[in-house]
Amino acid sequence: MRNLLFLLQKEFRQIFRNPTILRMILMMPIIQLIVIPLAADYEIKQISISVVDQDHSPYSQKLVHKLTASGYFQLVEYTQSYAQASKTVNNGNTDLILTIPQHFERDLIKSNKAQLHLAADAVNGVRAGLG
């Protein structure tokens, strides 16, 4: 216990003897609280998306319109072929592929649910996960 007290006294003397150390002790946490939240912003906008629409219904077109109107997704390609959309991903022009299957509107109206297929380019894992 006595050794610990001696060590604490020595360290406090050192801190108050050198004013630079005292400024660092006070300023570094404040700087970290200000800078780190600005640097660690994971909000990604303008995620490029290719849509493979196999239904061509008004509901599928509304879905695509709502996605692009959100500001988070930028429509790069609207196609009927998954192979064509896959080429766009391989070229690095698209981050996500949204496939709207046939009978999307029918299933949505009939059972109030429908399935979609979403494929993400995993080269940029953070972007793909957030997308």
Rank of each mutant, 00 (worst) to 15 (best):
R23H: 11
R23D: 05
M24Y: 15
M24D: 06
M24C: 12
I25S: 03
I25N: 01
I25F: 05
L26N: 11
L26Q: 06
L26Y: 12
L26F: 08
L26E: 07
M27V: 09
M27D: 06
M28P: 01
M28F: 10
P29S: 14
P29M: 14
I30Y: 00
I30C: 05
I31W: 03
L33E: 08
L33T: 02
L33H: 08
I34H: 03
I34M: 02
I34D: 07
I34R: 08
V35W: 04
V35N: 02
V35H: 02
V35G: 01
I36W: 02
I36Y: 07
I36M: 10
I36Q: 01
P37C: 04
L38T: 04
L38K: 12
L38F: 13
L38A: 14
A39D: 05
A40G: 05
Y42S: 08
Y42P: 04
Y42V: 02
Y42K: 13
Y42L: 12
E43V: 08
I44T: 05
I44V: 11
K45R: 13
K45L: 15
Q46I: 05
Q46K: 09
Q46M: 02
I47C: 04
I47W: 03
I47N: 07
I47K: 01
S48D: 07
S48C: 02
S48L: 01
I49N: 02
I49A: 00
S50T: 04
S50D: 07
S50M: 08
S50A: 15
S50L: 02
S50H: 00
V51M: 10
V51G: 09
V51C: 00
V52A: 14
V52Q: 13
D53M: 04
D53A: 03
D53I: 00
Q54S: 14
Q54R: 12
Q54D: 11
D55Y: 03
H56W: 08
H56F: 07
S57W: 15
S57I: 10
S57T: 13
S57D: 08
S57P: 05
P58H: 15
P58C: 14
Y59S: 14
S60P: 08
S60W: 03
S60A: 03
S60G: 02
Q61K: 15
Q61W: 10
Q61V: 11
K62L: 14
K62I: 11
K62H: 15
L63K: 09
L63N: 10
V64R: 03
V64I: 14
H65Y: 12
H65E: 11
K66Y: 14
L67E: 05
L67A: 12
L67P: 01
L67Q: 07
T68L: 03
T68W: 02
T68F: 01
T68D: 01
A69Y: 09
S70Q: 05
S70D: 07
S70C: 05
G71R: 00
G71E: 00
G71V: 00
Y72M: 08
Y72P: 00
Y72F: 07
Y72K: 06
F73T: 00
F73Q: 06
F73K: 04
Q74W: 06
Q74S: 13
Q74N: 12
Q74A: 11
L75K: 00
L75F: 01
V76A: 04
E77V: 05
E77A: 10
E77Y: 13
E77I: 09
Y78H: 14
T79K: 01
T79G: 05
Q80I: 15
Q80P: 01
Q80S: 12
Q80H: 15
Q80V: 13
Q80G: 13
S81D: 10
